[in-house]
Deep mutational scan, measured.
Amino acid sequence: NITNLCPFDEVFNATRFASVYAWNRKRISNCVADYSVLYNLAPFFTFKCYGVSPTKLNDLCFTNVYADSFVIRGDEVRQIAPGQTGNIADYNYKLPDDFTGCVIAWNSNKLDSKVSGNYNYLYRLFRKSNLKPFERDISTEIYQAGNKPCNGVAGFNCYFPLRSYSFRPTYGVGHQPYRVVVLSFELLHAPATVCGPKKST
Score class of each variant (00 low, 15 high):
92 N>Q: 03
100 T>Q: 10
63 T>C: 07
88 I>W: 01
201 T>R: 14
1 N>H: 08
74 G>H: 03
98 D>M: 05
37 V>A: 13
77 V>P: 01
127 R>G: 05
195 C>F: 07
119 Y>K: 15
8 F>P: 03
54 P>R: 14
152 G>E: 10
159 Y>L: 10
31 C>Y: 04
92 N>M: 02
121 Y>F: 10
100 T>S: 08
40 N>R: 14
72 I>R: 00
18 A>T: 04
128 K>D: 12
184 S>G: 11
195 C>W: 05
140 T>L: 09
172 G>Y: 12
24 N>D: 13
40 N>P: 08
73 R>A: 10
147 N>E: 14
185 F>P: 00
41 L>F: 14
124 R>G: 04
130 N>F: 08
167 F>H: 05
44 F>W: 14
111 L>H: 11
132 K>H: 10
171 Y>N: 15
71 V>H: 01
15 T>E: 13
148 K>C: 08
1 N>I: 04
97 D>E: 11
42 A>M: 11
156 F>M: 15
41 L>A: 11
95 L>T: 01
5 L>P: 14
20 V>D: 04
159 Y>M: 10
117 G>H: 08
55 T>F: 10
156 F>T: 15
1 N>W: 02
19 S>I: 01
155 G>R: 07
51 G>Q: 07
199 K>I: 13
199 K>R: 14
140 T>Q: 11
79 Q>M: 03
158 C>G: 04
14 A>C: 06
134 F>W: 10
139 S>T: 13
90 D>L: 06
32 V>Q: 10
99 F>K: 00
34 D>K: 04
97 D>H: 09
65 V>L: 13
156 F>S: 15
21 Y>C: 01
72 I>W: 01
136 R>K: 11
123 Y>V: 07
23 W>E: 04
153 V>G: 11
136 R>W: 03
61 C>D: 09
56 K>D: 09
2 I>L: 12
137 D>E: 03
47 F>I: 14
40 N>Q: 12
47 F>H: 06
102 C>H: 00
147 N>T: 14
178 Y>I: 07
99 F>W: 12
134 F>R: 05
14 A>N: 08
193 T>D: 14
20 V>S: 04
17 F>N: 07
131 L>M: 06
159 Y>W: 12
150 C>R: 03
162 L>K: 03
105 A>F: 08
47 F>W: 15
53 S>C: 07
180 V>T: 02
181 V>M: 05
114 K>D: 15
47 F>L: 13
103 V>I: 07
31 C>P: 05
162 L>F: 07
112 D>A: 01
35 Y>W: 15
108 S>C: 05
175 H>K: 14
132 K>Q: 13
160 F>K: 13
150 C>G: 05
10 E>T: 09
92 N>R: 02
148 K>V: 13
56 K>G: 11
125 L>Q: 15
59 D>R: 10
184 S>V: 12
128 K>Y: 08
44 F>H: 15
180 V>I: 08
121 Y>T: 04
98 D>H: 09
105 A>V: 07
184 S>C: 13
52 V>E: 04
153 V>I: 13
162 L>T: 05
163 R>C: 09
135 E>W: 01
63 T>W: 06
36 S>M: 06
65 V>E: 01
65 V>Q: 02
18 A>G: 08
16 R>G: 07
78 R>E: 14
183 L>A: 00
60 L>M: 14
135 E>N: 05
161 P>L: 02
140 T>P: 06
25 R>W: 03
19 S>T: 03
113 S>V: 07
45 F>Y: 15
94 K>E: 01
12 F>P: 01
59 D>L: 07
114 K>S: 15
12 F>R: 02
102 C>F: 00
50 Y>V: 02
194 V>G: 10
84 Q>Y: 05
116 S>N: 15
135 E>C: 04
50 Y>D: 01
73 R>I: 04
83 G>C: 08
96 P>Q: 00
32 V>G: 06
115 V>R: 13
186 E>P: 06
165 Y>A: 05
